[in-house]
Design a protein around this nucleic acid. Structure first.
Length: 264
DNA sequence: ATGCCTAACACCGTTAGA
């Protein structure tokens, strides 16, 4: 089963690129972020025409996440537990029913759009950190189920200096701050496996390039889109790649898809 | 030190992104 994550930076503005990539890459499950549309305005018809079921948690103008799946989606949950006053659409989770005896080929997936957190001297940063604390709590609960789980999305965390083009330039940013990295590391220490990094040792490979300063042409990127696998999912991991193709198109999203392949 | 792009919304600029 091929599972991808992609921050599309407006599903309306980048729908043709999104549809092209679905046809070309043929992922079974896609976790989308930054839809920037309400549920009503999500282009479900065009995506369903390609054989996908959609679970959408949208919002006007900002945020918005979705799960696309060629298999049926069950037990869809929207919003991250732990703060009823949080009205930003940054989390949607579902069970992908891929069959198998007793659901053995299925997997639980979540599409995550973690807050950016800049500037760090504002409540945006405290919101990011508390959101990550809530994610740690929820990820802990999911581990107890012993299900295969894939938590994929735009984490807005550069895990290590080797995951950006210029560590000095990014020093002090919410994406590299020790508090952000510590919480990301907590997810790994709980038992989650970051799919791409566990299969690749190379430095300076990226999933995001700023629109400004010719960042794409100079390969001045950062790696912030991640797929975190529970032990039961990691046992089935056979491949993970970053597909730079979509970022090189005309008027692209500033992120490019990251995917992993699970056995069965 | 700041803008540099891009998208949305609404107004001809502001907010947000990373």
């Amino acid at each position: 089963m091929k599972i991808a994550t992609w921050n599309v930076n407006s599903i309306k503005a980048h729908l043709p690129h999104t549809l092209d990539w679905l046809k070309e890459a043929q992922p079974d499950v896609v976790l989308l972020q930054e839809l920037k549309v309400t549920d009503e305005n999500f282009p479900a018809m065009e995506i369903e025409e390609l054989g996908y079921n959609c679970a959408v948690h949208g919002q006007k103008t900002y945020n918005g996440v979705a799960i696309l799946s060629k298999h049926p989606l069950d037990d869809v949950r929207t919003g991250l537990a732990g703060d009823d006053s949080d009205d930003q659409a940054r989390y949607v989770e579902a069970w992908v029913d891929a069959g198998g005896a007793g659901g053995s080929a299925g997997v639980r997936v979540a599409s995550i759009y973690l807050p950016n957190g800049n500037p760090t001297d504002t409540d945006k940063f405290t919101y990011k950190l508390s959101w990550m604390d809530r994610l740690v709590d929820h990820a802990t609960e999911l581990l107890a189920t012993e299900e295969p789980v894939v938590l994929g999305g735009d984490y807005n965390v550069i895990p290590a200096d080797e995951d950006c083009y210029d560590a000095v330039a990014w020093e002090g940013d919410a994406l590299t701050r020790p508090e952000s990295r510590a919480r990301f590391r907590t997810l790994l220490n709980l038992g989650y496996t970051e799919a791409w990094r566990t299969l690749h040792s190379e430095s300076h490979v990226y999933s995001f390039w700023d629109y400004q300063r010719g960042a794409w042409q100079k390969d001045n990127g950062i790696r912030i889109d991640h797929l975190l696998l529970s032990p039961q999912a990691a046992d089935r991991l056979t491949a993970s790649e970053i597909d730079k193709g979509p970022r090189g198109k005309q008027k692209p999203s500033d992120h490019t898809p990251v995917w992993c392949e699970l056995d069965g």
